[in-house]
Simulated assay, not measured.
Amino acid sequence: MRRMIITSSLLLALSTSVMAGQFYKWVDAQGVTHFGAQPPEGQEAARVNTNIIQPKAPEAKPPAATFESSGEAEQKAIDAKVKQDVAAQEAERKKYCEAMRTNLAQLQNNPRLRMDVDGEMRRLGEDERQAKIAESEKAIKENCN
Rank of each mutant, 00 (worst) to 15 (best):
1 M>H: 07
1 M>Q: 06
2 R>N: 09
3 R>V: 08
4 M>A: 04
7 T>Q: 01
9 S>H: 06
12 L>T: 09
13 A>C: 13
15 S>G: 08
16 T>P: 00
17 S>A: 09
18 V>Q: 02
18 V>S: 02
19 M>S: 06
20 A>T: 03
20 A>Y: 01
20 A>L: 04
22 Q>V: 10
27 V>F: 06
27 V>N: 13
29 A>R: 07
29 A>S: 10
30 Q>R: 09
30 Q>L: 05
31 G>L: 01
31 G>F: 01
31 G>W: 02
32 V>L: 08
33 T>V: 15
33 T>D: 07
33 T>Q: 10
34 H>N: 12
34 H>G: 03
36 G>C: 02
37 A>D: 14
38 Q>M: 13
39 P>I: 02
39 P>Y: 05
41 E>P: 03
42 G>T: 07
43 Q>S: 14
44 E>F: 15
45 A>L: 11
45 A>P: 05
45 A>W: 11
45 A>R: 14
46 A>V: 15
48 V>C: 06
49 N>I: 12
49 N>Y: 03
50 T>V: 13
52 I>R: 02
53 I>L: 02
56 K>C: 08
57 A>H: 09
57 A>M: 09
58 P>V: 15
59 E>M: 13
61 K>P: 02
61 K>H: 11
65 A>G: 07
65 A>R: 02
66 T>E: 13
67 F>Q: 10
68 E>R: 14
68 E>I: 15
68 E>Y: 15
71 G>P: 03
73 A>F: 12
73 A>M: 13
75 Q>E: 15
77 A>F: 10
78 I>T: 14
78 I>H: 11
80 A>W: 08
83 K>V: 09
83 K>A: 15
83 K>M: 14
84 Q>A: 12
86 V>H: 04
87 A>L: 08
87 A>C: 07
89 Q>H: 09
89 Q>S: 14
89 Q>F: 13
90 E>I: 09
90 E>M: 07
91 A>E: 12
92 E>S: 11
96 Y>H: 05
98 E>V: 10
99 A>K: 09
101 R>L: 03
102 T>L: 03
103 N>E: 05
103 N>A: 04
109 N>W: 00
111 P>T: 00
111 P>K: 00
112 R>P: 00
114 R>S: 14
118 D>N: 14
119 G>V: 08
122 R>T: 12
125 G>W: 06
128 E>Y: 06
129 R>V: 00
129 R>D: 00
130 Q>C: 01
130 Q>F: 00
130 Q>V: 03
132 K>R: 10
132 K>T: 00
133 I>V: 12
134 A>L: 11
136 S>A: 15
136 S>P: 01
138 K>L: 07
139 A>I: 04
139 A>P: 01
141 K>C: 05
141 K>R: 13
144 C>P: 02
144 C>T: 06
144 C>G: 04
144 C>W: 05
